[in-house]
Nucleic acid binder design. Structure first.
Length: 584
RNA sequence: GCGUUCGUAGCUCAGCUGGAUAGAGCGACGGACUUCGAAUCCGUAGGUCGGGGGUUCGACUCCCUCCGGACGCACCA
């Protein structure tokens, strides 16, 4: 589709250049020939507005369109026809050839939609970054879905991707859950209570609130515990290790459940000291300066900000110091061309400064750092607050979605039709939440409506899964010899209905969506394309008989188109980390 | 106060580097199953694109300003 569009653009540009030259106008104006999509397919498949040339040619746009059209019909053009439609020059593509290309997607399988637009580049993507004092919540699910799916999209565009997770396993907040466990835990283990281990740890973090009431010194004691931890106190380290294993172990189980994975884990406890040497180097090179009080700082006036402290006067490091060291360390580990940080938008300032600092230190790769900033996930009732207990726990959310999906399977009497109802319900639940999170533009805050996400109607993951299941069902029937499709041969020129053309177009433009999603780090583009494809298929399925079609050739062709649609749905769902279902 | 960002139908969201009558879904109302899975499809109602200026042949899209919301502005992470 893209190459066809490019070819037409070139042909139209050439015609416009000729006309401009004849009138003695600046031929450079032809750069304003840009392809667009007419609002209605009956008006054409590609549209070129002729407004930009009106002044130079002293002609009305409709006259220009007519002139370009006649010139095109005289010369050689790609397949299809060009026609003046008001002030636009519209192209009607040669539908059979596009249809043939779309149908070919069915044999391309998993490779359909892959591009080489990013081949040769190495991209590191950091996401999730959980704390080891509590289980994952809804906000993490957005981060995880965004990070995982962006990584998959980048890979689909040919990039070599390294997914990394920076586990935040140290700090005073970790010490709080430890202290709380020391007081209330009584040596119990998650197994003792039959609890998922990260929830077990999280419960003690919550209990720290009780501890503060029981013991006014609790905050101080947590600080003291941190000091002991940093000093390497054996008992403290032992407890820390034990609780961290519980926390990370439980969190990893949630990753497995949601289909999230990492190529490498970094632990903050192992690298929080790094960065000091880098700051010293920067001081030596003149990128930073030593303030009167002895602290090391950077002047941020080049980017319109104040100063930032990078090392305290006592020489200790701060968050920024750590991130500087970590970025450099990672580049040594795995030299990347780009590094993407999937982190909530509340840290925009931090990354703006961090990127500037790395550039100041003279790292070539620093210009390719990207903060994939995403908005908060709120509830219809308002913002999630840990202290108010309105945080939506990830595991509990998935459980309740699965429960509702199960009820739906039972209500529909589909238990016998699917091999494993519980597993199917789980996959529907995952599809519901991942699609809901994917369809919103990452940078914006969003409202997660559990009730709406549970709905299997409309713009949802289960709707798309359902269309995949329907097509799979058609294919099973064909394979069993039902219908006449098996006896017919594929003839793309038979696809003339509007609903068929719409599907052809969506299949043909899927690769462009993948490329755009990669270029913009935006899975929502895939989600929108998949929904449009699923909806178009549903209409097609409703309006036109496929297997039951009398003409064997038409049946075979429609089924082939359906198979191509299935390839798009499968590949797209994979990119969004949504399970595909043969039956549901 | 300064900075970043957002403000599109009752609700949740799209709207491609400015271009042809602003689109979906949910909800509401009304239709469609003796036929490939109705977890579906079709129709109706619903918007001065936060307000006001400006640039342009053309602005939801770019610029300015005001109003409103969110988030930042630590030698916390």
């Amino acid at each position: 589709m893209r190459s066809v569009k490019e070819a037409w653009k070139a042909a139209v540009s050439a015609a416009v250049v000729d006309i401009l030259a004849e009138k003695g106008a600046d031929a450079g104006l032809a750069a304003s020939v840009i392809p667009e999509s007419p609002p209605d397919a009956s008006m054409g498949d590609i549209g070129f507005p002729m407004f930009p040339f009106a002044k130079a040619l002293r002609m009305g746009p409709p006259q220009i369109a007519a002139a370009v059209a006649s010139r095109l019909s005289a010369g050689s053009t790609p397949a299809g026809t060009a026609k003046a439609v008001g002030p636009y020059l519209n192209v009607f593509l040669d539908r059979p050839s596009i249809a043939a290309a779309s149908i070919a997607a069915r044999t391309a399988g998993q490779s359909y939609g892959r591009s080489s637009s990013l081949s040769g580049s190495r991209i590191m993507v950091e996401f999730s970054s959980p704390n080891t004092n509590k289980p994952l919540h809804l906000g993490h699910l957005r981060n995880d879905a965004l990070g995982e799916s962006t990584s998959r999209i980048l890979r689909a565009n040919g990039a070599e991707v390294m997914k990394i997770n920076l586990v935040n396993d140290r700090g005073v907040h970790i010490c709080k859950s430890m202290l709380s466990y020391m007081v209330y835990g009584g040596g119990r283990t998650p197994e003792d209570e039959g609890k998922k281990s990260d929830h077990f740890v999280g419960d003690y973090y919550v209990k720290f609130n009780d501890l503060k009431k029981d013991d006014p010194q609790a905050e101080e004691k947590a600080q003291e515990l941190l000091v002991k931890w940093e000093a390497g106190d054996a008992d403290t380290i032992a407890l820390w290790k034990k609780m961290n294993e519980w926390a990370v172990g439980g969190i990893r189980r949630t990753y497995e459940r949601t289909g999230i994975s990492f190529d490498k884990y970094y632990y903050e406890s192992q690298i929080y000291m790094t960065g000091k040497e880098e700051v010293q180097k920067g001081l030596a090179s003149g990128a930073f300066f030593k303030a009167e009080d002895g602290s090391v700082r950077i002047d941020l006036s080049p980017i319109g900000l104040e100063e930032k402290v990078l090392l305290r006067k006592d020489g200790t490091s701060i968050y920024m110091t750590q991130d500087i060291g970590l970025a450099i360390h990672r580049h040594v580990d795995w030299p990347f061309d780009r590094l993407v940080y999937v982190v909530a938008n509340e840290q925009q300032y931090h990354f703006k400064v961090l990127f500037h600092i790395l550039k100041s230190l003279g790292y070539e790769w620093a210009k390719n750092l990207y903060h994939l900033s995403y908005g908060l996930v709120n509830l219809p009732e308002g913002r999630m607050k840990t202290r108010e207990g309105t945080v939506v726990d990830a595991d509990a959310l998935l459980d309740s979605l699965r429960e509702l999906a199960m009820e739906e399977i039972q209500a529909k009497g589909r238990e016998d039709a699917v091999e494993n109802p519980m597993e199917t319900a789980e996959k529907i639940a995952l599809g519901a939440v991942h699609y809901y999170l994917a369809q919103a533009t990452p940078s914006k805050d969003m409202i997660f409506n559990p009730k709406e996400s549970l709905s299997f109607n409309g713009n949802t993951g289960p709707y798309i899964q359902y269309m995949g299941a329907r097509i799979s069902s058609l294919i099973r029937k064909r394979d069993k010899g039902e219908g006449k499709a098996g006896a017919g041969s594929i003839r793309p020129e038979l696809l003339t209905a509007d609903s068929e053309w719409e599907l052809v177009r969506l299949v043909a433009t899927y690769p462009e969506a993948v490329e755009q999603a990669g270029a913009e780090y935006n899975p929502a583009i895939i989600a929108a394309h998949l929904y449009a494809t699923a909806a178009a298929f549903s209409k097609f399925y409703h309006d036109e008989p496929i297997l039951t079609c009398d003409d064997p050739d038409l049946a075979a062709t429609r089924l082939a188109l359906s198979e191509a649609v299935l390839v798009v749905l499968k590949n797209g769902l994979e990119l969004l980390c949504i399970p595909f279902l043969e039956a549901m």
